[in-house]
Design a binder for these strands. Structure first.
Ligand code: MN
Ligand code: MN
Ligand code: ZN
Ligand code: ZN
Lengths: 124, 124
DNA sequence: CAGGGATTGAGAACCGTTATCACTATCGGC
DNA sequence: GCCGATAGTGATAACGGTTCTCAATCCCTG
């Protein structure tokens, strides 16, 4: 664990929403923390590999990162402000397993995200 | 509807798996069909907007396209050969709606994909 | 046949991400 | 402390998928 990695974890720890690497870079530089963009990408990749951060892809293909609990979960995300809630989904887990089995697919995995507008965001 | 757009729809119609724009381009050119890459991207975007093709993002961020039924559905996808089955998921629809409501999120939407290895693909 | 708006496609530009590589920080052994 | 080995950093270049540009072409309508 190096100073830079700690800084990145810290930046994510304070944050409820998913953030992009470029956003983190801009924020840290603005805050006067010296760090390279390559370092941020490397750290995020490492953290994603070890399961310390979750990754999701924007509709446009950009990768977003978030410090999440280690238990299996999914996300409820405000599509305006990005506010994110971790949600459990036992029924969905079982459904995914069953649908794979029914069609003869083995070693099943799944992605599930729910989007909406949170209480604090106007309709606009 | 122009010749090019018809060609693209045709290429997708014969295909069970999700395909990338670049794959379609390579295949059509190899088959002797003259078409530009920009045209393919434009056509796919239009078709996606009108709901005639579904789009999904690779883990690496690449966009993949597939001609699908018009009813709401999700996908069961072989992560080796790409074979794709459309699946209904009423239980999941209801769960998504409920979880959004419970947390005060309105106008809910969701993404759900199931991945696995199909019968025809070795474990490798 | 024109005229004119829509479409095409080669190439350039764009942008998020990854690779390169010289430099620096860290650490265990001396 | 000093040294060499090792791992990490970051400015920059390269990469790859997508979008933009714009001149040429198509195609509908009068
Ligand atoms: Mn799950
Ligand atoms: Mn659904
Ligand atoms: Zn919000
Ligand atoms: Zn398969």
């Amino acid at each position: 664990m190096t100073r830079q990695r700690d800084v990145i974890l810290q930046a994510l720890a304070d944050e409820e929403a998913f953030r992009s690497a470029q956003e983190l870079y801009a924020d840290l530089r603005t805050a006067g923390t010296p760090i390279g963009l390559a370092t941020i990408y490397r750290a995020l990749q490492t953290l994603a590999d070890t399961g310390d951060v979750d990754v999701l892809r924007t509709e446009s293909g950009e990768a977003l990162y978030r410090r999440c609990g280690t238990r299996h979960h999914h996300h409820l995300i405000c599509r305006s402000c990005g506010k994110t809630v971790e949600v459990a989904a036992d029924a969905v887990e079982q459904w995914a397993h069953a649908v794979a089995k029914r069609h003869g697919f083995r070693d099943p995995a799944h992605t599930v995200e729910v989007f909406g507008l949170c209480r604090d965001c106007p309709d606009a």
